[in-house]
Amino acid sequence: MELHMQGQVAVITGPAKGMGAAITRAFAEEGVDLALFGRDTDAIAPVAEECRAMGRRVEVVGCDVTDAAAVDAAVASVVETFGRIDILVNVAGGTGPIGKTGTETTAAEYDEIVSLNMGGPFHMIRAVAPHMQGRKFGKIVNVGGTFGMKGKAGRLAYSSSKWGLRGLTKSFAIELGGDNVNVNCVAPGMVDGPRFRTKVVPEMARRLGITEEEAAERHAADYALKRVSTDEDIAAATLFLASDRARQLTGVDIPVDGGWAAL
């Protein structure tokens, strides 16, 4: 199925590593030009070079997405450079405190993760949407998480922020739909990568007294498909929602988790 995205312009936040880098490469492979936002521009540089090698136009933009004024200025610079923004993908986010109950979580810890996981996408959409509305075209994809669909003890701050991102997605979908702007959310479950292999799996192995291979298999057994998602799985779902093949989808949450959230 052809996605027909060649020559479009996408703004992607958090593109330096993991699923953000995989999403960035996937868009470049589809012929999309890129504006890559992040605080650490040096970390983004290798991914940017990969995409330029595919023949894409790529600009790396230093920006703290929790700073509304910085976001406004960065988006204005992209519009001036590229002439338009067709797609916005909000990947940038954090994990917040792990293993703390709600009463153990400090106000500062809670505020920090909510500011990043909810405030960042809010500032980005608020800045980008008027440009899309003016052209009567746009695709916005927020990257959430399945803990924002089922909740999770010991992850209250993170879970709250991702639940809030779902509300933000649905509200913006209603407000922007009349201008032909789609707003959707991809919700990854656990993703097989450095954190899974160096933290999640070893911790489970130590706790249960089993090998790391057995721990990885037990983790996968929690999912209907009996496998853990990859960065490329998340990228594929994001790419689809950002294409016009998904023209009739807006305000939806798509869990990409092998069936965990559905069970």
Rank of each mutant, 00 (worst) to 15 (best):
A187K: 02
A173F: 11
K199Q: 13
R195N: 02
G164P: 04
M190I: 14
E214H: 11
I174W: 04
W163H: 14
M204V: 07
E214I: 00
N180H: 12
T198N: 15
G193P: 07
R206N: 11
V181S: 03
F196Y: 15
G177N: 09
N184Q: 06
R195Y: 01
A173I: 11
M190T: 13
E212I: 02
D179H: 14
M190W: 02
M190C: 00
G178Y: 12
P188V: 08
N184V: 05
G167R: 08
T198S: 15
P188I: 05
R195L: 09
E217F: 04
V181D: 05
A216P: 00
G189R: 07
T198Q: 13
G164Q: 02
L168Q: 03
L176S: 07
A205Q: 08
G209W: 09
W163M: 07
E212L: 08
M204C: 02
G164T: 10
E217S: 12
R197L: 04
G193E: 11
V200D: 12
K199C: 02
R207S: 14
K162E: 01
N184T: 04
G189K: 05
V183M: 07
T198K: 12
T198A: 13
N180F: 12
A216W: 04
R166D: 03
N180K: 13
K162C: 07
K170F: 02
N184I: 05
M204R: 15
V201N: 10
I174A: 12
N180P: 02
A215E: 05
R197Y: 08
A205F: 06
G178S: 10
E203G: 06
D192C: 01
I174D: 09
A215K: 10
W163G: 07
R218E: 01
G189Q: 06
V201Y: 06
L208R: 15
M204N: 07
A187R: 01
G164V: 08
C185E: 14
M204F: 08
L165T: 09
F196Q: 12
E203C: 00
R206C: 00
R195S: 09
P202A: 11
T211P: 00
T169Y: 04
E213L: 07
G209T: 00
R206Q: 14
D179W: 05
V181I: 11
L168W: 02
A187H: 14
F172W: 15
V181T: 10
G164E: 06
R218M: 09
P194M: 05
N180V: 01
L168H: 08
G177Q: 08
F172V: 08
L168D: 04
M190P: 08
E217C: 04
K199D: 11
V191M: 04
N182I: 02
